[in-house]
Amino acid sequence: MPLVKAGYVVLDCAEPEKLAVFYKELLEGEQTEATANRVEIQGADGTRLAFRRDMNATPPSWPRPENSLQAHIDFVVDDLDAVERRIVGLGGRPLEAKEAPGPYEERGYADPSGHSFTLRRVTASAPKQG
């Protein structure tokens, strides 16, 4: 029996209920648990995310160079354009307008609370450049 039962990426935000809806819809998932200060979801593919209330939360400033990206979520997709339309329709926004060079295509976005995430056509294996 494993010692760790489940792992979650936890995003701090002012309104966890609203942010959970964004990711639940994007990942075509379901809410698995909710308390006054935390909401957990599981995407159709098994991705587990949690959103914790932080009344002092401020949006990350990435991609400003003075605040390097410390963590973000990568989602692997087949159709970048279709998923981008869904993200924008759910209240997210593009962070980068240009296509990334290299063996895979990727695009950066921010969720409604400002957390960054990336869509990729294939899983990245090279280190981040720049």
Rank of each mutant, 00 (worst) to 15 (best):
R64Y: 03
V122D: 13
A36N: 05
R85S: 09
E99L: 09
L11Q: 10
E40T: 07
L27M: 14
P112L: 06
G92F: 02
D79N: 15
I41L: 06
D54A: 07
A110I: 04
G29L: 13
D78C: 02
E105N: 08
A100N: 04
E30G: 13
V39M: 01
V21D: 06
E105W: 07
L26E: 04
A14P: 01
T118I: 14
R120W: 06
R64V: 15
E96N: 10
R93A: 13
L3W: 05
N56I: 01
E17G: 11
A100F: 12
L69C: 13
G89V: 04
F117D: 05
N56H: 11
E30H: 03
A14G: 11
E84S: 12
E33M: 09
C13R: 03
Q70Y: 09
A82H: 11
D78R: 09
R93L: 03
R64A: 10
L69P: 01
E84C: 04
I73P: 03
Y104P: 00
W62P: 00
A36D: 09
R53H: 02
F51I: 06
P112T: 02
G130Y: 11
G114P: 00
L119M: 12
D111R: 08
H72A: 13
T123S: 14
M1W: 05
E40D: 10
L26Y: 03
G91K: 10
D78P: 00
Q70N: 08
A126T: 15
N67S: 13
P127E: 10
A44L: 06
A82E: 15
I41P: 00
R121I: 14
V83R: 12
G102S: 09
S68M: 10
S125H: 15
R52D: 06
F22C: 07
L3E: 13
L69S: 08
E40A: 10
K24Q: 15
K18H: 05
A36S: 14
F22P: 05
R93T: 12
F51E: 13
